[in-house]
Write a protein that binds this DNA or RNA. Structure first.
Length: 423
RNA sequence: GGCAGGUUGCCCGAGCGGCCAAUGGGAACGGACUGUAAAUCCGUCGGUGUACACCUACGAAGGUUCGAAUCCUUCACCUGCCA
């Protein structure tokens, strides 16, 4: 495996290095051979999301440049949970965490190569944490953590008023121990993670310096935020999940397609493997004619392909083209329409007696949470049947409304579609 | 263990016996303008029927009262001070 000497420059160009320990020393290390690095993922949900994707893709960039990944799934740390400002976490049941370990592992594996000189390795920190005795933990690990320094960390400081349990307070010891363990067992000398992990990353570096007198490295990727500084990824279903069961490839594709203009360059750099030249050219074209939305389209296609594959991307694109085409829906071929609606989300209704009212259909398709909300939406002029605004809250679709004899297209607002298949 | 303060709708946060489904801000949703962008403006924002109504809600359970988010009792949890 050849080592790509431009790796670190590329990461910096992409804005992926928000914090770092001695960057020159890291540059030297990366130039001298395949560096063994690790990145950890805690199973705190049944799926990873957009924030984790930054780490996964960064790991892949490092591997493609010749370095050797150790992808850690936190079977142990996931049982604890790192402290966050919002407050104490609710602990998940052990069985739940173990199930999520499997799912998370399955989501990471497709992005890494497990063959060749720098094959990736999956590890689980439960393997070395569970067998350890409390005494050993306190003597071998705890001894190296001055509480006054731990208290000075921002997350902890912010929690001193509202309260923080010893459990969460101790999280940093576990993660630091992971780095130490991987360093001892496998010679890992680089850890990276999100910038919110910076405190945990440097704690590990320091633990290794204290116990092994070794100099190891850490870098943190930036936190991705919207143009107004708020967190990304809040869609209807919650976060921007990578699991297609939790967020359809269509919805995933739509998310990127709706990216803000000012974020296009940043997102292309972080989430695609396009070259510098391609990205810069695209940015230039996008700046000149933003209304063409070329940047959003390329971004959406690239990222969806990375996560869900080319086939799913094509289907998501076709669905969007059909639904957002602007033309009369009745002009669409039945098969195209059906496929598009199934992508966007569709329900089935029996053609028995009379069709449910628009209000009921809005609720059943999930476009509205309650009948009151559905009614309100219609009153506000935000409900559409087959792309025609619904004026009457009592309206009931008739057989004449069925497109191709089977489909009703419901829309709430500008971009929330749902299909109703009558059979 | 003692004393003091706190627990309000998705989040923050007012309310401190009736005029409270509960002020305000944020988030979210819809409309207008647009490019499935941003910003801006307007509207909506517990549920059922929608007119007035009813139901469920202000940590939990009881109680006082014609009437309680608001007062009392007990319990749970959180914070601070003292042991």
């Amino acid at each position: 495996m050849r080592i790509d000497p431009t790796l670190l420059d590329d990461l910096e160009w992409r804005g992926l290095v928000a914090h770092s320990t001695d960057l020159d020393a890291l540059r030297d290390a990366l130039g001298q051979g395949s560096v063994k690095f690790y990145v950890g993922f805690d199973p705190t949900a049944p799926s990873l999301h957009m924030g984790h994707l930054v780490q996964i893709l960064t790991a892949r960039r490092l591997q493609e440049a010749g370095h050797t990944p150790y992808a850690l799934v936190g079977g142990a740390t996931g049982m604890i949970g790192d402290p966050k400002e919002a407050g104490e976490r609710i602990m998940n049941a052990a069985e739940t965490v173990q199930e999520w370990v499997g799912r998370v592992r399955g989501q990471i594996e497709p992005f890494l190569s497990f063959e060749g000189d720098n094959a990736a390795t999956m590890v689980n920190n439960l393997d070395w944490t569970a067998p350890m005795s409390t005494i050993d933990f306190l003597r071998d690990i705890g001894k190296h953590f001055p509480v006054n320094r731990m208290l000075a960390r921002d997350v902890v400081k912010s929690r001193l008023e509202s309260g923080i349990s010893y459990t969460e307070f101790s999280y940093v010891l576990l993660q630091s121990m992971d780095y130490l363990e991987l360093h001892r067992q496998h010679g890992v000398t680089l850890q990276f993670g999100g910038s919110d992990q910076w405190g945990n990353l440097t704690a590990g570096v320091e633990l290794i310096r204290r116990t092994e007198s070794a100099k190891v490295h850490a870098i943190a990727t930036p936190l991705m935020t919207r143009a107004d500084g708020t967190k990304y990824g809040k869609t209807d279903g919650g976060a921007l999940w990578l699991d297609p069961e939790m967020l359809s490839p269509y919805a995933f594709h739509q998310f990127w397609l709706n990216a803000e203009d000012v974020k296009i360059g940043e997102l292309l750099r972080v989430f695609t493997f396009l070259s510098h030249e391609e990205i810069e050219a695209l940015e230039a074209r996008h700046a000149e004619r933003p209304f063409l939305r070329e940047g959003q389209k390329v971004l959406a296609d690239e990222v969806t392909t990375l996560v869900h594959g080319a086939d799913e991307t094509e289907q998501a694109k076709a669905a969007a083209a059909a639904l957002f085409g602007g033309g009369e829906l009745s002009g669409l071929a039945g098969a195209t329409l059906g496929a598009a609606l199934r992508e966007a989300g569709a329900i089935e209704v029996s053609s028995g007696a009379e069709l449910p009212s628009v209000v009921d259909l809005l609720v059943e398709t999930g476009l509205a949470r309650s009948r009151g909300e559905a009614r309100r939406t219609i009153t506000e002029g935000g409900a559409y049947l087959n792309n025609h605004r619904v004026e009457d809250p009592e309206q009931v679709p008739t057989a004449d409304d069925l497109l191709g004899g089977t489909w009703l297209v419901l829309r709430r607002g500008k971009k929330n579609f749902a299909g109703v298949e009558v059979r």
